[in-house]
């Protein structure tokens, strides 16, 4: 595809900055540029094009430059559609801890959009992914958070998934979490951390 030459702007003589067409196709092409600044500007402007979510997610996984990654994450947050959310969720499976953590932080900011995916995520076969899902719940401020956490500590077979959920129940748990916490203590009677964290959560609930 031929690129349209954009109208010269005061910033057009800065290397990599806004030298390509700013329509969606031009921005998608700029997102692949060798120059990081060009990719960053393209990622920023693509926030206005919800149908660019898949391309942004693809670039996020390839992108080596941290500053570009940050802008892509911000654009995906602004787009916030199912493609963006699924792309961010897919990052939870990556070995790249920095990208995984960044994805978790972005997902935390999108409670309503993430909620429909949460049930499946909490059932993922990989316990690390279930832990990341509980991490996302931490700031989700969604009405179902306590219900999801109770379900996790009642059913999840993995001690670390339950431990992460108990940490959070210690902050958001109410009277309705008590029975599940007591039952968790019995299920993991040999795990000092579960005993400690459950006792702490129960004390806090009883003090309220």
């Amino acid at each position: 595809m031929a690129l349209k030459k954009g109208k010269p702007t005061p910033s057009s003589d800065v290397p990599g900055e806004r030298q390509q067409a700013r329509d969606r196709d031009g921005l998608l092409q700029a997102l692949q540029a060798d120059d990081a600044m060009t990719r960053r500007w393209a990622a920023r402007d693509l926030a206005a094009h919800s149908e660019a979510a898949a391309a942004l997610v693809g670039q996020l996984r390839r992108e080596c430059e941290n500053s570009v990654r940050q802008v892509i994450l911000t654009s995906l947050t602004q787009i916030g559609n199912d493609t963006a959310i699924q792309g961010l969720i897919d990052c939870l499976y990556l070995e790249d801890a920095m990208l995984r953590n960044a994805a978790i932080e972005v997902l935390k900011e999108l409670p309503d959009q993430v909620a429909p995916f949460m049930g499946k995520l909490l059932q993922d076969p990989d316990p690390d992914v279930r832990i990341f899902a509980v991490d996302v719940l931490e700031s989700l401020r969604h009405p179902h958070v306590e219900e999801w956490l109770i379900e996790v500590i009642s059913q999840d077979p993995h001690v670390n998934v339950c431990a992460t959920a108990v940490d959070l129940l210690g902050e958001v748990g109410s009277e309705q979490a008590k029975a599940a916490l007591i039952s968790l203590k019995q299920r993991f009677a040999d795990e000092p951390y579960i005993q400690f964290a459950s006792d702490l959560a129960l004390k806090r609930i009883e003090a309220e």
């Binding site: 070995e95 690390d128 670390n160 579960i194």
Partner: peptide, 25 residues
Amino acid sequence: TESSANDRQAALVAGANLYILKPIK
């Protein structure tokens, strides 16, 4: 909580002297 070999290796490369898994006793 992560047990993959990559995480362990990355921890040691970053400067950890030891990598241990939760839950800790």
